[in-house]
Design a protein around this nucleic acid. Structure first.
Length: 572
DNA sequence: GCCGTTTTCGGCCCGACTGTTTTCAGTCG
């Protein structure tokens, strides 16, 4: 059973226990378990009991429940809880301003268990009789239901970055020197964000006014002395927090999170006789403030080096920092080439020369041109004859152009049975072959896994492109045992791609980290279809950083000569 | 439910804002 499925079950149990009014720490234990399972690269269902128990946060009970889910496909405990509350009630918990206490009361006292029922009851004014609920709250709930229906959940991180940039620019309209820093999941580089948080140093309340007056604001959710929350017309919630400059570092640390990282950090503070909150680090005995103005200062007060935001998930980064063994994360400047790009020869929008020049201007030393292959007729894919002719053109262009090396490649389709779309002797004449799945997405897991394994085993395949095929918010990953694919990639020296397209980010951070652990090289590719697409590489770099990747783990940080030597076709 | 170099019981992070309950509970991050 898939990790995400198991994570979803634990998360739902957390919600149901909360409705029951269970011990909050028990609820937290299930939510933590959901996070851990969701962020684990290898399948927890395949782990032995001892291995499961070795994961911090997974104890005897949760391990047994994972086993039960893996063996039977369901969980009796979850079924029992669902007999107390209908599953439709869980939608109500997702409403803005509505929490478990309210939902439980709505259900017990009015029998409301669905969005529809809540909407009807609120419209009829039947809620205001309940303790703690007035006419105003009733209206808020009606609006929350409408908003829930309109929005599609979380937003891809690259989109949220654009939104945050625009908001920051608006805020700086009053003061060009104003420091506006995005925090929260965006700063950590999470692949999707449920909202955007911005931090500003100072005490000038006018900035909160300016924030609330941003043209993209649909309505103001709340505004106080230190914080304002708004809902943007695109459905994203944005929060602005105003913090005194002497507390800026502590606030940056606090609001960047993650929650799990902060809890672990506070625990470390307490062990050292200190207290950490969003205003600073304080001695527990005297209350004296010992740090808070800058983030490095906050970490230093806890005897830690600065921890890059992308690592702050409580996945071992605090221990690594404590022993000074944090990874030296790859950055955009380390990338010397791009190994996945299209031109007008298949479905790109710019010709070969234009793409080459744009890559050079993006600071790249080499670019692999990898058109689609013939089975992708919709994208004007190339057959063997065109592939070899195009390779000649690429090599001619390479000889003609200065300061950029062009590699003749192909993005070859992996056919439903795992065979490659082009003949092996053709593929062998190229500099690099990226193999990808673009069809028959609905295959069963075994069939899809075997399909990818067959491609990995082919001697002419160097890289597997967007290995899980997901499209954020639009298409789930195809059913594949990615751990098996990673194992095979390790055995055959095949690299796996982190595709930087904003709606792909595929491999995910968890899978990329697993690839690192299994000794598989990664490439960070733009999958560019236009001259402005090399900028997308920044998103792939964010994923790689969240996966703890260092330059040495990423093939396209190498010189073109070293890259060629490292490709599977040139090994052995 | 998890955890343990003060440990197998008794803890588990902390503060702001809102609406309504005039002193606070619920929600959120």
């Amino acid at each position: 059973m898939d990790n995400l499925l198991i994570a979803r079950v634990f998360s739902e149990i957390g919600d149901l226990l909360e409705l029951k009014g269970e011990n909050p720490f028990k609820i937290r234990a299930y939510r933590t378990a959901a996070d851990i399972v969701g962020q684990t690269g290898e399948r927890v269902a395949d782990l032995a009991d001892a291995e499961l128990r070795a994961i911090p946060g997974i104890g005897k009970t949760v391990a047994a429940k994972i086993r039960e889910l893996a063996d039977t496909g369901q969980l009796a405990f979850q079924q029992e809880l669902l007999e107390e509350f209908p599953s439709t009630i869980l939608d109500l918990l997702r409403l803005q301003g509505v929490g478990p206490k309210t939902v439980a009361r709505l259900y017990r006292e009015l029998g409301i268990s669905s969005l529809d029922a809540l909407e009807t009851a609120a419209a009829e004014g039947r809620l205001r009789g309940l303790r703690g609920l007035g006419a105003k709250k009733e209206q808020l709930m009606l609006r929350a239901v409408a908003e829930y229906r309109r929005r599609e959940g979380r937003f891809p991180m690259p989109d949220v970055q654009d939104i945050a940039d625009a908001l920051a620019e608006h805020l700086r309209g009053a003061d060009p020197d104003l420091q506006v820093t995005p925090v929260g999941s965006l700063r950590r580089g999470c692949e999707t964000c449920g909202d955007t948080d911005l931090l500003v140093a100072g005490t000038d309340l006018a900035i909160l006014e300016r924030f609330a007056a941003y043209p993209g604001v649909d309505r103001v959710l709340g505004r106080g002395e230190t914080k304002a929350s708004v809902l943007l017309t695109n459905g994203l919630q944005a929060d602005l927090r105003l913090v005194p400059s002497e507390s800026l570092g502590a606030a940056l640390q606090y609001f960047t999170g993650s929650k799990a990282h902060n809890i672990a950090l506070r625990d470390r503070a307490i062990q050292r006789g200190l207290k950490l909150n969003e205003y600073g680090v304080y001695r527990l005995d005297t209350g004296e403030r010992v740090a808070g103005a800058t983030e490095p200062e906050v970490y230093a007060a806890l005897a830690l080096p600065f921890i890059p935001p992308e690592l702050r998930e409580d996945r071992g980064e605090i221990a690594a920092a404590g022993t000074d063994t944090l990874p030296h994360l790859v950055s955009r400047g380390d990338l010397r080439g791009d190994l996945h790009a299209h031109t007008t020869e298949s479905d790109g929008r710019a010709d070969l020369d234009a793409m080459a020049v744009a890559a050079r201007e993006a600071g790249l030393e080499y670019l692999a041109i990898t058109e689609h292959s013939k089975s992708l007729a919709m994208a004007n894919g190339l057959d063997e004859r065109r592939t070899l002719a195009h390779a000649r053109q690429i090599r001619d262009a390479d000889a003609r152009l200065d300061d950029i090396t062009l590699l003749a490649g192909i993005e070859c389709d992996i056919l439903p049975d795992g065979a490659l779309d082009l003949a092996e002797d053709c593929l062998a004449q190229l500099d690099i072959v990226v193999a990808s799945v673009h069809s028959a997405f609905s295959q069963e897991e075994r069939e899809m896994t075997d399909r990818l394994l067959r491609a990995v085993e082919s001697p002419v395949v160097d890289v597997i492109g967007h290995p899980t095929g997901r499209l954020l918010r639009r298409r789930d990953p195809y059913r594949v045992n990615i751990e098996e694919v990673i194992g095979a990639a390790a055995a055959h020296g095949v690299a796996l791609e982190i595709n930087s397209q904003a709606d792909r980010l595929d491999l995910s951070d968890a899978h990329a980290r697993l690839a690192r652990e299994r000794g598989v090289s990664v490439v960070i590719s733009s999958d560019a279809h236009a001259t402005n697409a090399f900028g997308l590489l920044r998103w792939g770099v964010v994923v790689a950083r969240r996966a703890w990747l260092e330059p040495e783990h990423v093939l396209n940080t190498r010189s073109v000569e070293a890259l060629r030597a490292a490709l599977r076709r040139n090994r052995n």
